[in-house]
Nucleic acid binder design. Structure first.
Lengths: 339, 339
DNA sequence: CTGAAAGCGCTTACAG
DNA sequence: CTGAAAGCGCTTACAG
């Protein structure tokens, strides 16, 4: 049977451009990589031909051959919290600038899906993974990923002691600042609103206790009301706090979104944060600027945090043997109208 | 030179398990694919060996060989808007359930980065792309991606006439319902707050006009105040609207986040939405439930929208020749406290 | 049921 | 400077 022309749908490869340009495929490959080994005249012609043929680089093939990858995985526990959305955007921005493309997965705090997506990223040969771990993530995950041979950057929620790279914020310091401010404004009874589990919760609570202690006011566990770290939680928590006797008129919140929930609960009672009640959030999410009223909060610059995380992973990818990196954003008290 | 054992760092391949199991690599491949061609006894042994050797499937190699891909790209214009975050989560969830992993990119309404990330997804051989286009995206993009041979699903923002798949919401219907409600509550002057450009804006504005018209109230362009579709925009827009004479005490917003900004502006003036001013949003973002006060809005179920989009892309991937799919979510008026 | 062989689209020594 | 050849880790007809 006579050899027929291949179907037009076949993608054009370096062989095609090599033939059309009258060079070998090695030459084409070199040109595509911008190698100085090829005379500019030849290179120009090859590029020309590639363009007219509609050649598109097959990165998968290249990555397979050279055992590299330009893909990095980022797994987020709770994208419904704008804090994490902002972090994600920061990560993705930095990654893209560095020539990587991001594989994104949302775990929704589910450990099983977290395990599954990490596996999936491994099969994809991600060059690295940045992980905002779901609550309850076992510390062994770090070792597991290390055994896989893929660089890991843990983000926001620490996994406890270990030799992994981490970028987060100085949580005790943040709540310390917030509590101190409220105390300084003359509040004797200040509550701690929302949050319920996890290392971050403990850290934030500890900063609150420390400020209390330093000011010589006794810790009263009636004033810390646990709740899910979201709007609904903040809403409920504030309701409970308001029931305490004697009355409490100030609180630091686990994070901004629980503060938003608290704001709603206050509004419902015709109370206004700032005048009737002093409320301070944590994170400084973009929305905090235009909540009702604008939220005083602990600024940890979510977007910048994401960029730092991406950058830290990138340097780890390039320097596998470098010492452990730990970066803690320095929190800053940002006063708006709620306190 | 004597042949030495290969370094331990070399990843184990099907050849390794084939050797260890005493079968050919074809057999291993078949076992891995769960082919019924292999006797269960053999298959079991192979799986056993693979596990003890720590074999991990190299999907990139497999995809290259069979020219397939289990990766789909999703490009989002504005992740700072919780609406899109919720949509993204819906998309990712559905994709993961279907065995795909998502390549995510954020354009921040920048056409150049949009072009760049789409190119990048093409090089990665994404099996499909779901696109929430940046404002100003040329209609030609649809043809371009079609020429690339990669299935495309346009989401939320239509690109005008064309034969591409689309899932979004019935925008005119939504604002029509909102406006009608406000008019029915006795408001003679109802404003239209926020938004400024794009097809979605025009569609939402048209629904507003239609309701006005049906009610026999004249359209007054003094009552539509343009602003960026975010909190800041809503905040400013409400300020302007309040300056109109005679006073206006009701408005439908371009979307929920502009409504949130408006809520803040109201609060600053000691006005409360619901009693002093009637405000209706659009989207029904999760946050709307606990804003201050809870926001009445047009519900288009962001998460479900995302899932539908992913599903539509998936069926397109499987049926390239099927007729065009267009799905418009039916908006529903959801009354809470702001109106 | 299982094996030998070709091939996916690249890259990278190695010659010339 | 450029070409011929081997190989990345798989899959898939094709034989047997």
């Amino acid at each position: 049977m006579a050899k027929t022309t291949t179907a037009l749908t076949r993608p054009v490869t370096i062989m095609d451009v090599a033939n059309a340009a009258g060079v070998s495929k090695s030459t084409v490959s070199l040109v595509l990589q911008g190698s100085p080994l090829i005379r500019e005249e030849t290179a120009g012609r090859v590029r020309e031909v590639a363009k007219t043929l509609g050649y598109v680089y097959n990165r998968r093939a290249a990555d397979l051959r050279r055992n590299s990858s330009n893909t990095v995985g980022v797994v987020i526990n709770d994208l419904m919290n704008p804090f994490f959305a902002e972090v994600l955007v920061g990560i993705e921005r930095k990654l893209m600038q560095a020539g990587y493309i991001t594989l994104m997965a949302h775990t929704n705090e589910n450990l099983e899906v977290q395990q599954k997506v990490m596996q999936s990223m491994r099969e994809q040969h991600a060059a690295g993974i940045v992980l905002c771990p779901a609550i309850g993530t076992p510390r062994t995950l770090v070792k597991q990923v290390r055994d896989w041979g893929i660089p890991l950057l843990v983000m926001v929620r620490s996994l406890g002691p270990g030799s992994y790279d981490f970028v987060g914020s100085d949580n005790p310091r943040g709540t310390y600042l917030a509590t101190q401010h409220l105390l300084g404004a003359g509040h004797k009874r200040v509550g701690f609103l929302g949050g319920q589990a996890g290392l971050v919760y403990e850290q934030r609570l500890s900063g609150y206790r420390k400020a209390l202690e330093e000011a010589g006011v006794a810790f009263d566990d009636k004033l810390v009301v646990n709740a899910k770290p979201n709007r609904q939680g903040g809403y409920q928590a504030l309701g409970e706090l308001l029931a305490r006797k004697p009355a409490v008129k100030a609180a630091v919140c686990y994070n901004d979104i629980t503060a938003f929930g608290a704001l709603a609960a206050l509004g419902e009672r015709k109370l206004r944060a700032g005048s009737d009640f002093a409320l301070i959030g944590f994170d400084n999410v973009l929305d905090a600027q235009h909540s009702n009223p604008p939220l005083s909060t602990i600024d940890i610059q979510p977007g910048a945090l994401g960029e730092q995380a991406a950058q830290a992973l990138l340097t780890r990818i390039e320097h596998p043997e470098r010492a452990r990196q730990v970066q803690l954003a320095e929190p800053t008290l940002l006063l708006r109208q709620s306190a």
